[in-house]
């Protein structure tokens, strides 16, 4: 077991433990904050897989953006003072059946697949350069379409989240 393996198990441990806390915690704030460590551990695993751009994007979008949105959502929705924030365990039987099917499928694919392992390829220095070049040359149209998708998401999110002005004035 070399150093990279030890670092991998370190990040895997962080991911699994914090994910377990996220699921089993009775307090939703603890869940939201332990999700931060889950995202962080996944980013570490991405780095170990030589996917440095995805790791940076993971930190930037999930930790910086989506988690903040989740924490805001938790802080905005519940009635705060003197109300216990609790999560319950529901639908045990259907839930375990579905997770067993998904987990079994993933394990089956992992065992059955004839993994194509390339030996002795020099590690890629930085994937960001490659991704940038591909964006600007071969995948130019998808890149521009991504901005349109973002535009649609922005307008849709703003439209849905907007406070109703007429309701606001009457209140």
């Amino acid at each position: 077991m070399n150093l990279v393996d030890i670092i991998f198990y370190f990040f895997a441990l962080i991911t699994l433990v914090s994910a377990a806390i996220t699921v089993y915690s009775r307090n939703i704030i603890y869940s939201a904050f332990s999700l931060l460590f889950t995202f962080f551990g996944v980013a570490g695993i991405y780095v170990l897989l030589n996917a440095d751009f995805i790791a940076v994007a993971q930190i930037l979008i999930y930790v910086g953006g989506i988690l903040m949105l989740l924490v805001f959502g938790v802080m905005l929705t519940h009635k705060v003072i003197n109300v216990e924030i609790k999560t319950g365990i529901l639908n045990v039987v259907p839930g375990s059946i579905i997770t067993a099917i998904i987990g079994g499928t993933l394990c089956g694919v992992f065992v059955v697949t004839d993994w194509f392992i390339v030996e002795g390829v020099p590690p890629i220095k930085s994937t960001t350069t490659e991704i940038g070049t591909m964006f600007m040359t071969k995948y130019l149209l998808p890149f521009e379409i991504a901005s349109v998708v973002l535009l649609v998401a922005l307008i849709g999110a703003a439209y849905i989240a907007r406070r109703d002005k007429s309701k606001n004035q009457s209140a």
């Binding site: 704030i29 751009f53 940076v56 994007a57 930037l60 979008i61 910086g64 953006g65 989506i66 903040m68 949105l69 805001f72 959502g73 802080m75 905005l76 519940h78 009635k79 705060v80 003072i81 960001t128 350069t129 991704i131 940038g132 964006f135 600007m136 890149f143 991504a146 901005s147 973002l150 998401a153 922005l154 999110a157 703003a158 989240a161 907007r162 406070r163």
Partner: peptide, 28 residues
């Protein structure tokens, strides 16, 4: 733990889109 105003959420949603935009700017 106090209840935050809803307008923080709208700003956060708009921020998220531009956060993704920054990720696209990065390889460029």
């Amino acid at each position: 733990i106090v209840k935050f105003n809803i307008r923080f959420y709208v700003i956060a949603l708009i921020f998220l889109i531009f956060d993704v935009e920054v990720v696209f700017l990065f390889p460029w």
